[in-house]
């Protein structure tokens, strides 16, 4: 049985539909990624999963308990790491953990033990007594994750935990999450960085404009684009014109353009390249870079939505 099963989740804000009929499940020990650009509806989905927002329709069941927005047993199974650093700056790391641990029903010696082991886990064992506003950015991020682990939840939910983090801390965070997976915890991870989704997640749901447009492992998703390598071009000028000309050529399987980039999937990249350069020159487009790559999630997103994933 899945630790989390979300069925038919939908939520509107006034006229805007933020989440539209989203369903997915996560098994124990599995890491599920919600991948999508800013505004895709990831946070709104997570808010409904955590019982912060009531869905207009759909249900969330965690470990057999149905989620609601008030005090309910389902909430004891999950640990949320919000997108923001949700720590009181005027309290120490340990005091923050005491407070949030108590809200999760921990107390006494057990609370103390859990705080010690979480501080150890996130590498803050000797800094637990300091106010969190004295922490570095990376330390805050780690403490932010640690707070969600106090009550040993069956489901850990992280909302873009690496936004605004330097590459080194980001690596440490991703390694930390990978370690948690081996403990059998189910993880729901949202991001707009495809490398993170690729590196961490067993399964990925691709989100755009409130809808789940595709779901599967990285390999499964990439196969949607095809087995062929991707010819990537960058250039100045109207790439759309080039795209529309290329799309009708024989041997071209897929051709997408966005923000000065042009990706072409063809039977024979080398053959197509010559034609691309010709068409570009003919249309006054100056090609500045060319590479041939295996397709990745970026291509999948472009293929599925016609848009680039990056902001």
């Amino acid at each position: 049985m899945d630790v989390l099963s979300a069925t038919g989740l939908a939520r509107r804000f006034g006229e805007r539909t933020a989440v539209d009929d989203v369903s997915f499940g996560i098994a124990a020990g599995e890491t599920y990624g919600l991948l999508g650009p800013n505004g895709a509806g990831k946070t709104t989905t997570i808010s409904m999963v955590c019982g912060l927002l009531a869905p207009d329709s759909g249900t969330v069941v965690i470990n057999g308990d149905t989620m609601a927005t008030d005090r309910c047993p389902a909430k004891t199974h999950l640990g949320l790491v919000p997108q923001e650093i949700a720590l009181y700056p005027d309290l120490s790391g340990r005091e923050n953990m005491e407070f949030f641990g108590r809200l999760q029903g921990l107390s006494g010696a057990r609370l103390g033990e859990r705080i010690d082991s979480v501080l150890e886990l996130v590498g803050l064992a000797d800094r637990g007594g300091e106010r969190t506003d004295d922490y570095s950015g990376g330390m805050k991020r780690r403490a932010n994750i640690g707070v969600a682990l106090l009550h040993e939840p069956e489901l850990l939910i992280l909302d873009e935990p690496t936004v605004g983090v330097d590459p080194q801390s980001r690596n440490a965070i991703l390694d930390g999450i990978a370690d948690l997976q081996s403990s059998g915890m189910a993880v729901l991870y949202t991001t707009h960085y495809m490398e993170e989704a690729e590196r961490l997640c067993d399964r990925i749901g691709v989100m755009d404009e409130g809808r789940l447009v595709a779901e599967g492992s990285t390999a499964e998703l990439v196969s949607l684009v095809g087995e062929h390598p991707v010819l990537r071009l960058e250039g100045d000028g109207d790439l759309r014109v080039v795209q529309s000309r290329l799309a009708v050529l024989d041997g071209v399987i897929d051709c997408t353009s966005a923000e000065g980039r042009l990706d072409v999937v063809a039977q024979e990249s080398a053959v197509v390249l010559g034609e691309v350069l010709q068409i570009a020159e003919h249309n006054g487009v100056r090609i500045t870079a060319v590479s041939v790559d295996e397709p990745d999630l970026e291509d999948v997103f472009l293929h599925l939505t016609g848009k680039a994933l990056r902001d």
């Binding site: 912060l52 909430k75 949320l80 919000p82 923001e84 650093i85 949700a86 009181y88």
Partner: peptide
């Protein structure tokens, strides 16, 4: 600041 989200994600 997301504090309320964290609080309300607890029971």
């Amino acid at each position: 600041d997301g504090m309320l989200a964290r609080i309300r994600s607890a029971p």
